[in-house]
Design a protein around this nucleic acid. Structure first.
Lengths: 336, 336
DNA sequence: CTGTTAGCGCCTTCAA
DNA sequence: TTGAAGGCGCTAACAG
């Protein structure tokens, strides 16, 4: 599988490599005839520009790295897919790196991507460790954190795009209150996630303003799964409880709760209203129809990609920017 | 963001670039002391090997391209994600390219990836156009087709890994027959998909062997979606029908049918048994619990990746190989 | 053990 | 309009 190079073409056409290069790149200083002749030859010989060589010179690869620490999170996986769609429209390619449990850390993925000379990196993570990573690596390559809250003290040195989780929490609380609920449970908040903490605070603040009573059930695990949602919900549902609504910290938690309710014969939304957060694809399914707060994955991805592009264009010396997207309440069938 | 190169390090350390190169690559012919010294310097100066330059020499990039023509298919999206997981374990990176409706064709993606000097390409597609693409491009780069059936006449010149759709169809028919069903509908088969045709034939062959009557509803669209599943199912469900089971050509079709049944008050599996194909994530959800035939996405991805690796290692002159994975019946709650 | 030289495929001055 | 020369960052002979 030896590849034909610019040199081969030059020899065959009886011209210099420079001329071939010019033909390929649509340079102005070349006669239309030679250009045509050379282009045809390229076609015929199956010549393909070696983009690696070009990148070596231009020191731009037109590739961005997408790092996905938790591939099992449908939210982040969807984010990654949307990122690809968006970058492609801007002429960039995506190099996808997902983290695996017990495998080498995110650090090494970053190191690799930088060595691979990606023009920028998008980190789709809700882990609290993310900001530190950015601070460590962003001197070497532009990085944007996607979909995670960044605590204020660090925020000035981080580029990120995230849903406004605080507002999302508020929206949920107000919605449930508007429906007449006065005692609700906040299910599955994670203490070690700033994103979750913020979401929770938004909910509590709005709730207390409205005089709504909320009891929080914390999730000890470090990831939100249907399993933990199921477990946590079971603990509540098994004994008598007075709350009339559950706001789940994420859709997966809500799905778990839904299962628990189902098994115990607790009707949703009859006896209990249920609300999620994220609006992952699952929630739209006929039999599910979960009312939830949408993080607007597509807009998030788009915004993140565009920010990264700006950073790449501007090179060094750009101020750091944080963007917050307002979430959207998706009314479906699990609340009343 | 100027990058420190091997040359910079050499100058700082007062040695030649070769020596630095040797230190970096753990070459044997170098004294431990100088190696240490240089490595420390690299660390300190934040040196990172330019993998593009290295690839230029070795003409191996350690990157494979993954082409995903239809990103809206959960099955193929899952496949792509699993591919990444698998390749990473083998020391390869993934460049992800998804097709977009109305955007440039798959051809151009292939051209691009070849220019980018990927070591191989994995095409996750069920389109009938795929084999032709392979034949056109596989002289330039090793390609494996993943998840699609290849018609026998072309098959000898194609590398592919696919579920055995014929057997999958048989399994479904036999299962339904075993449950006592004698009149069933095959919902949403696509005429222009060999994969679908094969699946259908497997089902029909087994059914007729067992004396089970099957009426097929064809899907005119070129993609399987819940919407079309819904529409097609509605047509049947609206008037009286005698069949007691529906085998959907794919899970998405089944999900649409489920919704239709729901709206019309047709109980599943009470009045009607429902079966899907693919075993996409959705089907495992508590409220769904769709009985289906699993394509074993992970195994499929793993097998495809490994085949591609072999092709890459062997270079030219390897015979073509087709691998068929036996699907697995996943019993859940929609059949009886 | 270390350095010199050449070259991977391409682009970019600078001359002709 | 075309070509020759140099170099992007790195590795691979081949000498010392």
């Amino acid at each position: 599988m030896r590849r034909v190079t610019i040199k081969d073409i030059a020899r065959m056409a009886g011209v210099s490599v420079t001329t071939v290069s010019r033909a390929i790149n649509n340079a102005p200083e070349i006669s239309p005839e030679t250009r045509e002749r050379i282009l045809e030859l390229c076609q015929k010989e199956g010549y393909r520009t070696n983009l690696l060589a070009r990148s070596l010179i231009s020191s731009r690869s037109n590739v961005i790295g997408v790092v996905l620490p938790d591939i099992s999170s449908p939210f982040h996986a969807a984010l990654a897919l949307h990122i690809e769609t968006c970058t492609a429209q801007l002429g960039y390619q995506v190099m996808l790196c997902s983290g695996r449990p017990g495998k080498k850390g995110i650090d090494e993925l970053f190191d690799f991507l930088i060595s691979q000379r990606v023009d920028g990196i998008l980190l789709a993570s809700s882990s609290n460790g993310a900001p530190a990573l950015l601070e460590k690596y962003q001197s070497a390559v532009p990085i944007v954190l996607l979909g995670a809250f960044v605590p204020p003290d660090a925020s000035t040195r981080i580029n990120c795009v995230s849903t406004d989780n605080y507002v999302g929490g508020q929206m949920a609380a107000r919605y449930l209150h508007g429906l007449g609920h006065r005692k609700v449970v906040y299910l599955g908040a994670r203490r070690h996630s700033d994103t979750h903490l913020l979401r929770h605070r938004g909910f509590e603040d709005a709730a207390s303003e409205l005089g709504m009573e909320v009891s929080t059930v914390w999730n000890q695990e470090n990831r939100s799964t249907t399993e933990s949602g199921y477990q946590l919900a079971m603990e509540i549902f098994r004994k008598p409880f007075s709350q009339t609504a559950v706001f789940a910290a994420s859709d997966l938690i809500a799905l778990g709760a839904m299962q628990a309710a189902d098994e115990l014969g607790i009707s949703i939304p009859g006896r209990l209203s249920l609300m999620g957060f994220d609006n992952i694809d699952y929630t739209a399914l006929p039999k599910i129809r979960l009312t939830t707060i949408s993080q607007r994955t597509e807009a998030l991805a788009g915004s993140g990609v565009r920010l990264l592009m700006e950073l790449i264009q501007q090179g060094d010396g750009m101020e750091f920017t944080q963007r917050l997207l307002t979430p959207v309440l998706i009314q479906r069938n699990t609340c009343r």
